[in-house]
Simulated assay, not measured.
Amino acid sequence: MSAQPADQHVEDTTLDAEITGVVSMLMEEHGTEAAALRALAHDFIVLLADADRSTSRGYLRGLFSQGARPVRDPE
């Protein structure tokens, strides 16, 4: 048996509901579909550039800082 009153509203927390809410907010803020898509594309490109800057390129395919350090002669 449920402990909630019958008239209590239960918020939909599914991913689809979240996306629908974000789309609605974007449409209210930007007015047109094109403007909302332009804003999303801008944010996406900025996030990708930020992620690219913060990714270490020091160890790639088994080569650590190739060319940045002198090769040591094994003695």
Results as ranks from 00 to 15, higher is better:
residue 43 D to M: 09
residue 38 R to T: 13
residue 22 V to G: 15
residue 42 H to R: 15
residue 49 A to G: 15
residue 39 A to P: 01
residue 40 L to Y: 04
residue 54 S to F: 05
residue 68 A to K: 12
residue 60 L to M: 11
residue 32 T to K: 06
residue 66 Q to S: 06
residue 45 I to N: 15
residue 36 A to Q: 07
residue 47 L to T: 12
residue 31 G to N: 01
residue 53 R to D: 07
residue 36 A to F: 06
residue 17 A to Q: 02
residue 53 R to Y: 04
residue 47 L to Y: 13
residue 31 G to C: 02
residue 70 P to V: 04
residue 31 G to E: 00
residue 41 A to M: 11
residue 74 P to T: 14
residue 25 M to V: 03
residue 9 H to I: 04
residue 38 R to H: 12
residue 2 S to R: 02
residue 67 G to N: 01
residue 38 R to A: 05
residue 67 G to A: 06
residue 29 E to L: 13
residue 14 T to H: 07
residue 10 V to H: 01
residue 58 G to P: 02
residue 18 E to Q: 11
residue 26 L to W: 05
residue 24 S to M: 11
residue 38 R to V: 05
residue 41 A to I: 11
residue 2 S to Q: 02
residue 17 A to I: 01
residue 54 S to W: 00
residue 52 D to W: 11
residue 68 A to P: 05
residue 73 D to N: 13
residue 55 T to K: 06
residue 33 E to C: 08
residue 58 G to R: 13
residue 49 A to I: 12
residue 68 A to S: 09
residue 43 D to Q: 07
residue 43 D to P: 06
residue 1 M to G: 15
residue 50 D to E: 11
residue 43 D to I: 09
residue 6 A to G: 08
residue 43 D to G: 10
residue 75 E to H: 11
residue 23 V to M: 10
residue 56 S to Q: 06
residue 30 H to G: 01
residue 18 E to C: 05
residue 10 V to A: 00
residue 24 S to T: 14
residue 39 A to N: 03
residue 14 T to G: 09
residue 10 V to N: 00
residue 61 R to Q: 03
residue 37 L to V: 06
residue 26 L to T: 03
residue 31 G to H: 00
residue 75 E to V: 13
residue 17 A to V: 05
residue 45 I to K: 15
residue 14 T to S: 12
residue 1 M to L: 10
residue 66 Q to W: 13
residue 64 F to W: 10
residue 3 A to N: 08
residue 37 L to Y: 03
residue 49 A to C: 13
residue 13 T to S: 11
residue 26 L to M: 10
residue 61 R to V: 05
residue 74 P to N: 12
residue 17 A to H: 04
residue 9 H to L: 04
residue 41 A to E: 11
residue 67 G to R: 03
residue 42 H to D: 14
residue 46 V to H: 08
residue 39 A to Q: 03
residue 20 T to H: 09
residue 5 P to C: 04
residue 10 V to W: 00
residue 37 L to F: 08
residue 27 M to L: 09
residue 25 M to C: 07
residue 18 E to L: 13
residue 75 E to T: 15
residue 26 L to S: 08
